[in-house]
Design a protein around this nucleic acid. Sequence first.
DNA 1: ACTATGGTGGACTGTGCAGTCCATTTTCGG
DNA 2: CCGAAAATGGACTGCACAGTCCACCATAGT
Lengths: 202, 202
Amino acid sequence: MRGELTAKGRATRTRIVEGAAAVLREKGAASATLDDILAHTSTSKGQLFHYFPAGKDELLVAVAQFEADQVLEDQQPYLGCLDSWEAWEQWRDVVIKRYEAQGDQCPLGSLFLQIGRSTPGTRAIVIELLHRWQESLAAGIRELQAAGLLPADVDADVRAAALLAAIQGGVSILLSTGRSTHLRAALDQGIEDLRRAGRAAV
Amino acid sequence: MRGELTAKGRATRTRIVEGAAAVLREKGAASATLDDILAHTSTSKGQLFHYFPAGKDELLVAVAQFEADQVLEDQQPYLGCLDSWEAWEQWRDVVIKRYEAQGDQCPLGSLFLQIGRSTPGTRAIVIELLHRWQESLAAGIRELQAAGLLPADVDADVRAAALLAAIQGGVSILLSTGRSTHLRAALDQGIEDLRRAGRAAV
DNA sequence: ACTATGGTGGACTGTGCAGTCCATTTTCGG
DNA sequence: CCGAAAATGGACTGCACAGTCCACCATAGT
């Protein structure tokens, strides 16, 4: 064998990552044990440490990367093409739907505060996710400006940062209270204010 | 002795709670051990379980309550008297200052996702904190309306919810990235949009 | 002073969990 | 086929940590 991993090996590895992600969402990164993950993925200790020699931390980083990619992917195709108010509304709906379905189990939320603090790897992943997310929002705002739907003096980056914070906060509150009212309020208000910024200047 | 706790006892109890709070902020609720707390507060196992018979969970709930009270207290006197735009700006400054000083250690953040999920007690505390916080913001908006600085058709509750989400998100991002730019953007944008809502309608 | 109750210290225990190790089976190149 | 490398299963180890237990000290009421 030349490569490090055979097809079977790769399949097992991804099975572990995806299964671990599910378990972590359900139980939180703190209380989820390797045995939980093994049981849920029908694998053994041997396999887990075969694919993740550094143990739990390495696995958690892999899961974090997987979840981070997932977050943005779930918002497509809307997030990538926010060039009209309709697109923004649709995107809003997707975000709310996604997080409402998720309920109080957040893929990154647990990693956010638990591993993110300790291992620099996860922290970098979260930072990159936030950055890409914000960039997409800023790009959307600029598209609105290009389309003449929004005046040029609106600061796309600051607006995007505020919107991102609003979403994060809404999700955060959803996680602690189980209610999505704040996420809705934050998104609705954010988009509405963006619109108002357009009308006010025009 | 009549009461359950003597003066000395009460002093020790609060020493444990406050010391535990410090340790939890520093290490996170997951990785902080009872021994850490004991070392930091110069107490012994015997004392800890004397004052918190149910063990770690009970202590964590006490810490959560303590921290929650602290959060709102730190924002006084501004939060209690948001009757002018100046008051809002000052409040904004206090919030940013507080969380910037805190850096990436959040008192409730760790409890938010870690204990809040598992024990219903902590969850209730967080929910109550958010509720009181939001009520204060809503009250402030209504004071602006009463003072004629804001039109009556602004929905105080939705605005307050959005603002609260913005703050939470800003703090959340501050925790994961170490940068306060989003918190600033969220607060500035939130207050600015509130002002704009006033001007637009008038 | 003495005695009951509360406060304090720390050794001890049990367990849950990450991580190790090796024996066995499967896969793949030649 | 056959040998080597990869994949798999699971018993075993060690330890960190929550929680127990009990012996000793301090204080307050009579």
